[in-house]
Nucleic acid binder design. Structure first.
Lengths: 185, 185
DNA sequence: GTCTATATAGGGATAGAC
DNA sequence: GTCTATCCCTATATAGAC
């Protein structure tokens, strides 16, 4: 355990994330990022030599690790129905604010899309594939399982949009409830 | 018909919109907006005295008029099932690119959210209310109709996110197909 | 590893000629 | 109604002291 820095790498990522979520890549200024981390702009460059791009990359990587932990890893369990159940619950832990926001979505505009669009696309593909495989394992035809998987992820993303618009978390919770019903009966 | 300007107000709005859609409010620079309209930055200020805020406001207003025409007006028809059918078809006309993008969604970050968040929220509320009223008129209990309406708009927004990520329009078309089935059987 | 100070570019916005 | 030229400010990034 390094005892040198005031904030650990993880803690810094946790401070950077809300800025990118609320302002997007182009709207996230170094002044905002410096305030959030309680560092000077120059100090930020010590930790993130390539500047804002590095900061966003680390923020995205940290959220990627949380997605892995809460949403994707559960989909590798032995029992498909339990796996889906756990993964859907994990979605609520992954998107966990009063008004939950998807960092990947916030980074899909302007320079953010140019820099991270490909990585985000691949992440979403992995999620959709793992979910569809589990749905198929419950006895649903593969083609149909793929459709349900895709619709589920779309519903989650859509609910997050409405959460952002109405500044609430109810749409996401309702969405997960519906997903449970639709997939698991 | 004024024959003075090279581009009409509507034509200018049509040029500004893609910039705000792809870059968001903060990412849409005056240089990009000037290029898109084939005007100098100074000329833009003649048409939009308050600058970028005015440009985004006009872009949003123009898309609002299209939403009214394609999606909302049909919901005032006499036959609720036909109204829903026409409105869902209208959604495909409203979001009409190779990779359809929602301007309101692109403006829900950073300064865009500060400036237009309230107006966007009200627009979505109107849409949800009109849709739910029509669903209720088909004989579905009001509470349930509200849920279906909300879920439909969420599904549309979610499908647009996936269209943006995968650079396609298929998710939106599939979404509208499913909405037809879900609501109209 | 942190900071102040600074360099350089680009952003939004305006003046004023045509 | 359009433009060039300009202004001021902020944004990103770097230099170099501590």
């Amino acid at each position: 355990m390094p005892r040198t820095a005031q904030l650990s790498k993880t803690e810094r990522a946790q401070r950077l994330i809300p800025i990118f979520q609320h302002y997007g890549y182009d709207g996230a200024t170094l002044n905002k990022l410096a305030s959030a981390t309680e560092l000077s702009k120059a100090s930020l460059y010590h930790h993130y030599p390539k500047g804002k791009e590095d900061m966003a990359r680390h923020a995205l990587a940290y959220m990627g690790s949380l997605l892995q932990k809460h949403v994707l890893a559960p989909l590798s369990g032995p029992d498909p129905e339990q796996a889906i159940q756990n993964s859907l619950s994990g979605v609520l832990n992954y998107y966990n604010g009063d008004t939950p926001i998807c960092l990947m979505n916030s980074l899909m505009l302007g320079n953010g899309k140019t820099l991270f669009g490909k990585a985000i696309r691949e992440t979403v593909k992995v999620w959709a594939k793992l979910l569809s495989q589990n749905i198929a394992k419950t006895g649903i035809p593969v083609i149909e399982a793929q459709e349900i998987s895709s619709q589920t992820i779309e519903a989650i993303q859509g609910s997050l949009i409405l959460c952002r618009i109405h500044e609430t978390d109810t749409h996401l919770h309702d969405c997960i409830q519906n997903a449970r019903k639709n997939i698991l009966g």
